[in-house]
Deep mutational scan, measured.
Amino acid sequence: MDVFMKGLSKAKEGVVAAAEKTKQGVAEAAGKTKEGVLYVGSKTKEGVVHGVATVAEKTKEQVTNVGGAVVTGVTAVAQKTVEGAGSIAAATGFVKKDQLGKNEEGAPQEGILEDMPVDPDNEAYEMPSEEGYQDYEPEA
């Protein structure tokens, strides 16, 4: 019985440690998101679009440190934060509304985080759909 109880105690310690790591990862992701939003706020009209992409990228980098179902929630929060940063930029006159959601080359930025393969159960990952990809044929 002692062996059984000791095993359960060790398992509990492992769960607590994993929860603490997840909590730490979420806190880091939130900190990076805040950094990115402050970065966007300090940019001029020309830099705002690039700044919004930076927020998304920093958040995406930190999301990889967070495991399990938390990833889905962090990704949703990050996307809403990026959308909010863009709205703030438009409201303050840093950028025109028609410039939001495009990178410096004018290509749409939507789907940055949505296409990231995420499995809350950590069982399997699927690649994003290939609808947006084109076949590449090298020139002879």
Rank of each mutant, 00 (worst) to 15 (best):
99 Q>L: 03
107 A>C: 07
50 H>L: 11
40 V>A: 12
129 S>A: 11
59 T>M: 15
61 E>W: 05
24 Q>C: 08
118 V>H: 07
16 V>I: 13
16 V>R: 12
94 F>G: 13
97 K>P: 09
109 Q>M: 10
5 M>I: 01
131 E>H: 09
55 V>Q: 02
60 K>A: 13
103 N>S: 06
61 E>N: 02
74 V>L: 13
31 G>Q: 06
31 G>V: 06
130 E>T: 07
23 K>N: 04
90 A>F: 05
29 A>M: 04
55 V>E: 00
55 V>N: 01
41 G>T: 07
105 E>S: 10
98 D>F: 02
125 Y>Q: 12
93 G>V: 06
34 K>N: 03
136 Y>P: 14
120 P>M: 13
121 D>T: 06
100 L>K: 05
76 A>I: 05
91 A>D: 07
104 E>C: 02
136 Y>E: 12
63 V>W: 13
134 Q>S: 09
63 V>H: 00
32 K>C: 01
67 G>A: 09
122 N>E: 04
7 G>A: 11
128 P>V: 03
80 K>I: 06
112 I>P: 05
99 Q>V: 09
35 E>M: 12
43 K>Y: 15
117 P>F: 09
127 M>I: 10
88 I>C: 10
128 P>F: 11
60 K>V: 13
54 T>H: 10
104 E>K: 00
8 L>S: 00
14 G>P: 01
82 V>F: 11
78 A>Q: 01
96 K>W: 15
122 N>G: 15
63 V>Y: 10
120 P>W: 06
116 M>P: 09
114 E>D: 15
43 K>C: 11
133 Y>E: 14
1 M>I: 00
38 L>H: 06
126 E>W: 07
51 G>L: 14
43 K>M: 03
75 T>K: 14
59 T>R: 01
29 A>S: 03
44 T>K: 01
76 A>Q: 11
108 P>K: 08
4 F>W: 07
15 V>M: 11
134 Q>G: 09
112 I>M: 09
32 K>A: 06
97 K>Q: 04
10 K>L: 01
23 K>S: 05
81 T>Q: 03
91 A>E: 15
80 K>D: 01
58 K>A: 11
107 A>D: 13
32 K>I: 10
123 E>D: 04
70 V>Y: 06
134 Q>D: 15
133 Y>A: 14
55 V>R: 02
71 V>T: 01
13 E>S: 06
14 G>F: 11
67 G>K: 12
98 D>C: 12
23 K>A: 09
79 Q>K: 05
135 D>M: 14
82 V>C: 08
127 M>T: 15
103 N>W: 06
108 P>V: 13
138 P>D: 15
63 V>Q: 01
138 P>T: 08
116 M>Y: 15
15 V>Y: 15
93 G>E: 05
62 Q>W: 10
4 F>H: 00
103 N>P: 04
4 F>S: 00
20 E>N: 14
17 A>K: 08
31 G>N: 14
122 N>C: 11
121 D>R: 13
95 V>N: 12
106 G>D: 03
13 E>T: 10
44 T>Q: 00
140 A>K: 14
139 E>N: 08
47 G>A: 15
61 E>K: 11
6 K>R: 06
34 K>F: 11
59 T>C: 15
70 V>Q: 03
107 A>V: 04
125 Y>V: 13
49 V>M: 11
76 A>D: 08
78 A>T: 09
103 N>L: 08
87 S>E: 01
84 G>S: 09
42 S>Y: 04
105 E>C: 09
138 P>H: 06
26 V>C: 04
21 K>V: 07
85 A>D: 14
28 E>V: 15
9 S>F: 15
74 V>P: 03
5 M>N: 04
105 E>T: 11
21 K>N: 03
47 G>N: 11
83 E>W: 08
48 V>W: 04
118 V>K: 10
71 V>K: 12
110 E>G: 06
19 A>D: 01
19 A>E: 00
67 G>S: 12
8 L>V: 05
52 V>W: 13
49 V>Q: 15
92 T>G: 10
136 Y>C: 12
30 A>M: 09
6 K>S: 03
109 Q>P: 15
80 K>M: 08
135 D>I: 09
7 G>E: 05
130 E>C: 06
63 V>L: 13
46 E>V: 09
71 V>D: 02
20 E>W: 07
138 P>K: 11
100 L>S: 07
135 D>P: 07
37 V>S: 01
99 Q>C: 10
98 D>R: 05
70 V>R: 01
98 D>N: 12
39 Y>G: 02
120 P>G: 10
97 K>I: 11
6 K>V: 03
93 G>Q: 07
71 V>W: 14
70 V>N: 01
37 V>F: 06
85 A>Y: 14
139 E>L: 15
10 K>F: 00
124 A>K: 10
58 K>T: 13
13 E>F: 07
27 A>P: 00
10 K>R: 06
41 G>M: 14
55 V>C: 06
40 V>P: 00
109 Q>D: 13
130 E>M: 07
81 T>A: 15
93 G>K: 05
84 G>V: 04
70 V>P: 01
90 A>Y: 14
62 Q>H: 07
35 E>L: 08
82 V>I: 12
62 Q>M: 10
76 A>Y: 12
25 G>M: 14
93 G>A: 01
114 E>Q: 00
38 L>Y: 12
124 A>W: 10
106 G>M: 11
78 A>H: 11
98 D>G: 13
14 G>E: 04
21 K>T: 05
117 P>M: 09
64 T>N: 07
124 A>Y: 06
20 E>Y: 15
41 G>A: 00
59 T>H: 02
109 Q>T: 14
34 K>G: 03
63 V>K: 00
96 K>M: 12
84 G>Q: 14
86 G>F: 09
